[in-house]
Deep mutational scan, measured.
Amino acid sequence: WVPDSEAPNCMNCQVKFTFTKRRHHCRACGKVFCGVCCNRKCKLQYLEKEARVCVVCYETIS
């Protein structure tokens, strides 16, 4: 899990986070992404309901 303080930009597209461009943690890899790069949901083994995942993890999992 990457702390918010260590991620000033999206770890995929590099967009800078602001008050309106929020950070989202991928529940699969723990990296920090913008809403566009972390907009998929899928079922993870260790969680009961679907969770937010990044586009890279989504392609790997599904």
Score class of each variant (00 low, 15 high):
Lys16Ile: 07
Gly35Trp: 10
Phe17Trp: 13
Glu59His: 06
Cys26Gln: 01
Val32Ser: 05
Thr60Asp: 13
Cys37Phe: 05
Cys57His: 02
Tyr58Cys: 07
Ala7Leu: 03
Arg27Val: 01
Ala7Trp: 02
Met11Tyr: 09
Arg27Ile: 00
Ala28Leu: 04
Pro3Glu: 15
Glu50Arg: 09
His24Thr: 04
Tyr46His: 13
Asn12Tyr: 04
His25Lys: 03
Leu47Ser: 11
Val36Lys: 09
Asp4Phe: 05
Lys21Arg: 06
Cys34Phe: 01
Ala51Gly: 10
Asn12Lys: 09
Lys43Pro: 14
Lys41Gly: 10
Val56Asn: 02
Met11Leu: 10
Leu47Tyr: 08
Phe33Glu: 04
Thr20Pro: 07
Cys37His: 04
Phe17Cys: 05
Val56Gln: 14
Cys13Phe: 00
Cys37Ser: 02
Pro8Trp: 06
Val56Leu: 13
Lys43Leu: 12
Gln45Cys: 05
Thr18Ala: 03
Gly30Ser: 06
Leu47Trp: 11
Arg40Asp: 15
Arg40Asn: 15
Cys29Val: 01
Thr60Lys: 04
Lys43Ala: 14
Val2Ser: 03
Lys21Asn: 13
Val32Pro: 03
Cys38Tyr: 02
Pro3Arg: 10
Val2Gly: 02
Val53Phe: 02
Ser5Pro: 03
Cys13Trp: 00
Val2Gln: 03
Asp4Ala: 02
Tyr46Gly: 15
Glu59Leu: 07
Leu44Glu: 04
Lys41Cys: 09
Phe33Ile: 06
Cys54Met: 00
Cys57Val: 00
Leu44Ile: 08
Cys29Lys: 00
Cys34Lys: 01
Tyr58Gly: 15
Leu47Arg: 07
Lys21Val: 11
Leu47His: 12
Cys42Phe: 10
Cys38Val: 06
Lys16Trp: 04
Thr60Phe: 10
Leu44Gly: 05
Lys49Phe: 13
Cys10Lys: 00
Lys31Leu: 09
Glu6Trp: 05
Phe33Val: 09
Arg27Gln: 03
His24Arg: 05
Ile61Asp: 15
Ala51Tyr: 02
Cys37Arg: 01
Cys13Met: 01
Ile61Leu: 08
Phe19His: 13
Ser62Glu: 02
Cys10Tyr: 01
Ser62Phe: 08
Thr20Phe: 10
Tyr46Asn: 15
Gln45His: 09
Asn9Asp: 14
Lys21His: 14
Glu59Val: 08
Cys42Gln: 14
Gln14Leu: 09
Ile61Met: 15
Gly35Val: 12
Arg52Cys: 05
Gln14Met: 13
Gln45Thr: 07
